[in-house]
Computed example of a mutant assay.
Amino acid sequence: MPERPRSYAIKAEIADSGAGSWAFAAQKTMYDGRRIAVGDVIYLFASENEGGAGLVARGVVTSAEDTPRLPDVERQTPRVSITVKRTAVATRRLGRAELKPFKDWDDGRPETELNFKFYRQATNKIVGLSPAAAELLSGFC
C-alpha cells in the first residue's frame, strides 16, 4: 500500500498570491522539509519579512529537486527547488500576529508548532507538518 502524501508548509516571498502555480528555487529546509516530494500537500505562507500576509493558499507539489551541496562547505542547510499548483485559497487570516500568542513550546498545540517552526527563527523555509498542524491549516483554506 503506497504511503499517503505528507503535508508541508513554505514561508517565502510570494509576489502574486492569486497565481495558479509558483516556483521556488533553492529553498532552505528544516524540520523534515527536505523530504518534500511530488504529490505532497503544501500550505503557502507569504513571508511577512517581504510584505506578505501569512497563509495565502494550499497546493500540491508538482516537482521537487534537491539542490546540490556546495563542495568544501562543511555545514549546509539542505535546500530544495519545488513547483506548486494551487488547489485552494486561504479564506481566513493566519500569520505571525495570529500565531504569536502560542509560545509555550511544550503545549502540543498545532498553532504552537507553526509559530515555532516559522517564527522562532524567522528565515524563509520549507517545513514538515504534523497531522494536527495540517488539519488546522486545512480549515483555513
Rank of each mutant, 00 (worst) to 15 (best):
Asp72Glu: 13
Asn124Cys: 09
Leu129Ser: 02
Asp66Glu: 08
Asp66Ala: 14
Leu44His: 10
Ala37Arg: 15
Ser130Cys: 05
Thr91His: 12
Ser81Gln: 00
Glu74Tyr: 04
Lys103Met: 06
Lys85Thr: 11
Arg34Gly: 03
Ile82Cys: 02
Arg58Asp: 02
Arg75Glu: 09
Pro68Ser: 09
Gln121Phe: 06
Arg96His: 04
Trp22Thr: 01
Asp72Lys: 07
Ala122Asn: 13
Trp105Glu: 06
Gln27Ala: 07
Ser47Arg: 13
Lys125Glu: 04
Phe102Gln: 07
Ala57Asn: 07
Leu55Cys: 10
Ala122Trp: 08
Glu98Ala: 09
Lys117Ser: 05
Gly54Thr: 08
Gly52Asp: 11
Leu99Lys: 07
Ala97Arg: 09
Thr112Pro: 01
Ala122Thr: 09
Glu113His: 03
Ala37Cys: 07
Ile42Gln: 11
Arg34Cys: 04
Thr62Ala: 09
Ala132Asp: 15
Leu70His: 10
Thr91Tyr: 00
Pro110Ser: 08
Ser47Pro: 01
Asn115Met: 12
Thr77Ile: 08
Asp72Met: 09
Ala97Val: 06
Asp40Glu: 15
Ala23Met: 03
Ala133Thr: 02
Phe45Ile: 10
Lys85Tyr: 00
Gly128Leu: 08
Ala64Asp: 04
Phe45Cys: 05
Thr123Ala: 06
Tyr43Ile: 05
Gln121Met: 06
Ala132Cys: 04
Gly59Trp: 14
Ser17Met: 03
Phe102Glu: 11
Glu65Cys: 08
Gly39Val: 08
Lys100His: 11
Val84His: 03
Ile36Leu: 15
Gly52Leu: 12
Ala19Val: 03
Leu70Glu: 14
Ala90Met: 08
Gly59Arg: 10
Ile126Val: 13
Ile126Tyr: 07
Ala64Asn: 05
Gly59Lys: 11
Glu74Val: 07
Pro71Phe: 14
Glu50Arg: 12
Ala90His: 05
Leu44Ile: 09
Thr62Glu: 15
Glu111Met: 04
Val56Cys: 15
Asn49Glu: 12
Lys125Gln: 12
Thr123Lys: 04
Gly20Thr: 10
Val38Glu: 15
Asp32Ser: 13
Glu48Val: 09
Lys28Asp: 01
Gln76Met: 02
Glu50Trp: 10
Ala64Pro: 01
Ala26Asp: 08
Ser81Trp: 00
Val56Pro: 01
Arg109Thr: 02
Lys117Gly: 02
Glu111Gln: 15
Leu114Trp: 08
Ala88Tyr: 03
Val127Pro: 01
Lys117Leu: 14
Glu13Asp: 04
Pro68Gln: 05
Pro110His: 05
Val41Phe: 02
Gly128Asn: 08
Leu99Cys: 05
Leu44Glu: 12
Phe102Thr: 10
Leu94Ile: 05
Pro131Asn: 09
Ile126Lys: 09
Arg69Phe: 13
Pro101Asp: 14
Arg79Asp: 00
Ala19Thr: 03
Asp104Lys: 14
Tyr43His: 15
Ile126Asn: 02
Gly54Trp: 11
Ile42Gly: 05
Val80Trp: 00
Asn124Ile: 04
Gly59Pro: 02
Gly108Ser: 10
Pro101Gly: 11
Thr77Lys: 00
Ala15Met: 06
Asp66Tyr: 00
Val60Gly: 11
Lys103Ser: 14
Thr83Leu: 00
Ala134Met: 06
Arg79Leu: 03
Asp40Met: 11
Arg34Glu: 14
Gln121Ser: 07
Asn115Ile: 00
Gly95Leu: 07
Thr77Glu: 03
Arg75Met: 02
Leu70Arg: 15
Ala53Ile: 11
Ala37Tyr: 06
Ala134Arg: 09
Tyr43Trp: 15
Arg79His: 03
Ala37Ile: 02
Pro101Asn: 12
